[in-house]
């Protein structure tokens, strides 16, 4: 019994952490100009948890007012989680639609997608190519029918500015200046918040030492 209790509490702390991580991934994804690595395990684990909760709630048949009340609260709680998961996925889909051809053209970007997202990207590109071709491109001279010429593919603007918070001491980061040639260094210490360009902190967002706000 005692052992069970221990296991339960450890389990709980981990779940808590999953929810916190999902919310941070949601923030990062909303604010980063490019698509980030898909949090497949996180999304899968939490979706499974929600499914289990839904199943358990549907199995309880009780006329007791308090039980009904408790179930209602649990429903509210998993609805909140589902909202975050959905918004996270839709944010990603929006980015994929914006940069579909760019993502397909880069192996690094492709591996950031889930298998489902990758399938979506392929069919999205096929469909839009068909559409452009049917609606106008087939009337153009052959030499300008292509959609993937250099400079035609919209890419994410990695130079855009973002708000970020430093989660652990990083030290000095060198950032290229725009007005004169040369670099300035910025010291990133835990707890500091900055408004700066995304590109220099790109690896720090990926490894979690900096989060976007």
């Amino acid at each position: 019994m005692f052992q069970d209790d221990l296991d339960d509490s450890a389990f709980d702390a981990e779940l808590n952490n999953d929810v916190r991580r999902l919310k941070q991934s949601w923030l990062n994804e909303k604010n980063a100009p490019e698509i980030l690595q898909f949090e497949s395990e996180l999304v899968k684990d939490l979706t499974d948890n929600v499914q289990t909760q839904i199943r358990q709630l549907s199995e309880i048949q009780s006329s007791d007012v308090m039980t009904a009340f408790a179930n209602n609260l649990k429903r509210m709680e998993y609805d909140r989680l589902l909202f975050v998961i959905r918004s996270y996925l839709r944010t990603r889909l929006t980015k994929i639609q914006r940069h579909a051809m760019y993502i397909l053209s880069s192996a690094e970007m492709r591996q950031r997608l889930s298998p489902e997202e990758l399938r979506f990207t392929h069919s999205y590109v096929t469909l839009s190519e068909q559409h452009y071709s049917n609606s106008c491109l087939h009337d153009f001279p052959e030499m300008i029918q292509r959609l993937d010429e250099k400079g035609m593919i919209p890419e994410p603007d990695l130079q855009t500015h973002v708000f970020c918070k430093v989660m652990e001491d990083v030290g000095d980061v060198e950032i290229e200046r725009a007005d004169v040639s040369g670099v300035n260094s910025v010291t990133l210490l835990k707890g500091d918040q900055f408004l700066l360009r995304y590109e220099p902190i790109r690896p720090l967002v990926a490894n979690g030492s900096v989060v976007l706000l």
């Binding site: 950032i175 200046r177 910025v186 707890g191 900055f194 408004l195 700066l196 360009r197």
Partner: peptide, 9 residues
């Protein structure tokens, strides 16, 4: 500051 603006708090 040409590269980063601190916005603590």
């Amino acid at each position: 500051n040409p590269v980063a603006t601190q916005v603590n708090n």
